[in-house]
Design a protein around this nucleic acid. Structure first.
Lengths: 135, 135
DNA sequence: TTGGGTACTTACCTTTTCGTGCGTACTTAC
DNA sequence: GTAAGTACGCACGAAAAGGTAAGTACCCAA
């Protein structure tokens, strides 16, 4: 019925990108995905499900994170509208971080993923051992 | 009742790591999480939900991936027991990749996350604009 | 008065990631 | 004969990520 080869991709790329399509290289959803699935992004989102916390609290909770990466990752998540930052203008700085409603939705999905991995870890490691021992 | 400072961490770190605890820096779940949430890992897991596919099929489906990264990421996912690789020893190489049952479970969680981001993208971008325009 | 805690920023340097291009061994199509 | 496709491996270099250390401005405890 139709031409097999059309001069333009179907439904316009721009439209796909506006809707969100992770398979399209230029889609901004790739950027968001990058922040969310970044090394520390996942951990922070899960950590923040425990409620409002301060910078140093998060630093202590998330093992191995540096101050630099904590600050940077929080800024990404804030820019994407997932975390809210409230700075109290007091003398030793006091800043509180929490999830926005949007962030809470997201964090649930992320935690589901992280929990699944933790739960299945023995099974995963077992599969790895089978492979290494040449089974 | 107890000492505030105990010479050993509670319940032993090793035990926490065997069970899986992403917040512990040395836990192997961090490694698995890294593979799964890597730039291309997410995309490949979602792409493989469409069923068994060949190397080149995946390359074409996932926009922007290089052959090197495709091969490497597939190897990670295979080592973790999420994808199965079947090589037919024929003359132009023919290799098929598919999700294992474990991988299918995982891919569902990952797809839920990716879908949510795609679906909420307009909302996310809107939040970003508000911020940039000094709201 | 020295040291530690708060919430960062900046500069510097190392590590990791990733893309590009080339090679392979062979077949099919042109 | 030449080009293209298949499924990679390898080597090189650029780019990005990320750790470390120091600085800030001020307070509190020892």
């Amino acid at each position: 019925m139709n031409d097999r080869i059309s001069p333009e991709p179907p439904a316009t790329l721009a439209e796909l990108m506006r809707r969100g399509n992770v398979f399209a290289e230029q889609c901004p959803s790739r950027e968001v995905l990058k922040h969310v699935t970044s090394r520390w992004g996942v951990l922070l989102l899960v950590a923040l499900r425990d409620g409002t916390q301060r910078f140093s609290d998060l630093r202590r909770k998330v093992g191995g994170i540096s101050e630099k990466m904590l600050a940077q990752t929080l800024q990404w998540l804030e820019a994407d509208g997932f975390v809210a930052r409230i700075a109290h203008p007091v003398v030793p700085p006091h800043v509180e971080y929490s999830l926005t409603p949007l962030g809470e939705e997201l964090a649930q999905k992320v935690e589901a993923l992280a929990d699944w991995i933790e739960f299945k870890l023995p099974e995963i490691m077992a599969a790895r051992v089978r492979r290494e021992s040449g089974g």
